[in-house]
Simulated scan of single mutants.
Amino acid sequence: MYEVLMVVYLLVALGLIGLILIQQGKGADMGASFGSGASGTLFGSSGSGNFLTRSTAILAIAFFALSLAIGNLSANHTKAEDSWNDLGTEAAQAVEVSTEQAEDKIPD
Score class of each variant (00 low, 15 high):
residue 1 M to L: 13
residue 2 Y to A: 09
residue 2 Y to K: 15
residue 3 E to Y: 07
residue 3 E to R: 05
residue 5 L to S: 08
residue 5 L to Q: 10
residue 6 M to N: 09
residue 6 M to V: 15
residue 7 V to C: 08
residue 9 Y to M: 15
residue 9 Y to V: 13
residue 11 L to E: 06
residue 11 L to D: 10
residue 12 V to W: 01
residue 12 V to R: 02
residue 12 V to N: 04
residue 13 A to Y: 01
residue 17 I to P: 02
residue 19 L to F: 12
residue 20 I to G: 12
residue 21 L to M: 11
residue 21 L to K: 15
residue 22 I to H: 11
residue 22 I to G: 09
residue 22 I to T: 08
residue 22 I to V: 13
residue 27 G to D: 11
residue 27 G to I: 05
residue 29 D to C: 15
residue 29 D to V: 03
residue 30 M to P: 14
residue 32 A to S: 12
residue 33 S to C: 08
residue 35 G to M: 01
residue 36 S to P: 09
residue 37 G to T: 07
residue 37 G to H: 14
residue 38 A to V: 06
residue 39 S to A: 08
residue 39 S to T: 15
residue 39 S to N: 10
residue 39 S to V: 14
residue 40 G to K: 14
residue 41 T to D: 14
residue 41 T to G: 15
residue 41 T to R: 14
residue 44 G to I: 02
residue 44 G to N: 01
residue 44 G to C: 00
residue 46 S to Q: 10
residue 48 S to A: 09
residue 48 S to Y: 08
residue 48 S to C: 06
residue 50 N to M: 05
residue 51 F to Q: 05
residue 51 F to D: 09
residue 52 L to T: 06
residue 53 T to L: 08
residue 54 R to S: 12
residue 56 T to W: 03
residue 56 T to D: 15
residue 59 L to A: 03
residue 60 A to H: 02
residue 60 A to M: 05
residue 61 I to Y: 08
residue 63 F to H: 12
residue 63 F to M: 09
residue 65 A to V: 14
residue 68 L to P: 01
residue 68 L to C: 09
residue 70 I to K: 00
residue 70 I to E: 00
residue 71 G to C: 11
residue 71 G to W: 00
residue 72 N to T: 14
residue 72 N to Q: 14
residue 72 N to E: 11
residue 72 N to W: 07
residue 74 S to L: 15
residue 75 A to N: 01
residue 76 N to A: 04
residue 77 H to Y: 13
residue 78 T to E: 12
residue 78 T to R: 14
residue 79 K to D: 01
residue 80 A to T: 15
residue 81 E to Q: 13
residue 81 E to P: 04
residue 82 D to V: 15
residue 84 W to D: 10
residue 85 N to P: 13
residue 87 L to W: 00
residue 88 G to W: 00
residue 89 T to H: 10
residue 89 T to Y: 06
residue 92 A to P: 03
residue 94 A to F: 00
residue 96 E to A: 10
residue 97 V to N: 05
residue 97 V to M: 07
residue 98 S to V: 02
residue 98 S to C: 04
residue 99 T to K: 09
residue 99 T to V: 04
residue 100 E to R: 08
residue 100 E to D: 06
residue 101 Q to K: 06
residue 102 A to L: 12
residue 102 A to I: 02
residue 104 D to S: 03
residue 104 D to W: 03
residue 104 D to T: 07
residue 105 K to G: 05
residue 105 K to P: 03
residue 106 I to Q: 04
residue 107 P to L: 05
residue 107 P to A: 03
residue 108 D to Y: 07
